[in-house]
Computed example of a mutant assay.
Amino acid sequence: MSAILPPSERLWWKTPISGQEWTWIGIAFVWAMIMFVMMVYWHINGKQNLSNEVYKTTTEMFTAKTEAFVKENTIRTETDQQIPVAKPNAKGEAFLLARLWAWYPILELEAGKTYKIHLSSVDYNHGFSLQPTNINIQVIPGYEHVVKMTPTKAGTYAIVCNEYCGIGHHTMLGRIYVK
């Protein structure tokens, strides 16, 4: 039998499965079960998968929350566009808004403290990829994602949009400073 030529018998699916094929089906099934169990194990003990909360919201509500957060917590502005740099509020919450083609505002965190970062988009699907760490979340309009994070090392971390969001996608970068 060849993969290029049509099957010699019209009802090829009624042909009995050979022993070698059963062996490969068994190996594939066992491997799938191992990976299924490992997904649960990695999620609980691996600490590389984020457990984030997601809430339904509107773009207007989240934009208002973000603007209120920026108004109360801005410590300075940066870049040519005068993007505000904000510290989290007293409860350790910060808001990040994704919109064509920017992350707003820039956040300044302290190493060793745990924060809840609220993420949402006002226009299209965007990707929140925090570099060089392994945090990667799809940010969808109409949903507020709450991510718990505890930065351990000081430095400047880049936020990269990894979901194509239009012609200016390549310029959609943000920053998080850790002091």
Rank of each mutant, 00 (worst) to 15 (best):
T57W: 08
E108P: 05
F69S: 03
A102N: 02
K65F: 10
T63L: 12
E60R: 12
H118L: 05
E93L: 14
T66E: 09
P105F: 08
E67F: 14
T57Q: 12
A86C: 15
R76S: 10
F69D: 08
T79K: 14
P84A: 05
K71F: 06
G92F: 07
W103P: 04
A102S: 11
A94W: 03
K71R: 15
F69W: 10
T63S: 15
K87N: 14
Q81P: 12
L96T: 05
D80E: 15
G112W: 01
M61T: 15
A94K: 04
T57D: 09
L107D: 01
F62Y: 11
W101A: 03
T66V: 06
T66H: 06
Q81D: 14
Q82I: 03
G112H: 00
Y104F: 12
L96G: 00
K56S: 14
F95T: 03
A102M: 06
Q82D: 15
K91T: 11
T63Y: 10
L109W: 04
H118M: 11
A111W: 00
Y115N: 02
A64C: 10
T63D: 13
T77P: 11
T74I: 13
Q81M: 12
W101K: 11
I117L: 13
I106M: 08
V70F: 11
I117E: 00
E110Y: 02
N73I: 06
E110N: 07
I83Q: 14
E67T: 12
V70E: 10
I75Q: 12
E108D: 09
T74S: 13
V85Y: 00
A102C: 06
H118Y: 04
M61S: 13
K56Q: 11
G112N: 01
R99H: 07
A64M: 10
A86S: 10
T66G: 06
T77L: 15
E108W: 13
G92C: 02
I75H: 01
K113Y: 02
V70D: 10
G92N: 01
E72H: 01
L119Y: 04
N89E: 12
E60D: 14
K91S: 08
K56A: 09
L97R: 05
R99L: 03
A111T: 01
T57C: 02
T77E: 14
T114C: 06
E72P: 08
I106H: 09
K65V: 07
G112M: 03
I117R: 00
K56H: 05
A102D: 09
N73G: 06
E110D: 09
Q82A: 13
A94M: 06
T57S: 07
V85G: 01
A111R: 07
A68C: 02
T57M: 13
K113M: 00
E72T: 04
L97Q: 05
L107F: 08
W101F: 13
L96D: 01
F95A: 02
K56R: 15
M61H: 15
M61C: 15
F62A: 04
E72W: 00
R76W: 07
A86Q: 12
W103T: 01
L109Y: 04
T79C: 04
P84F: 03
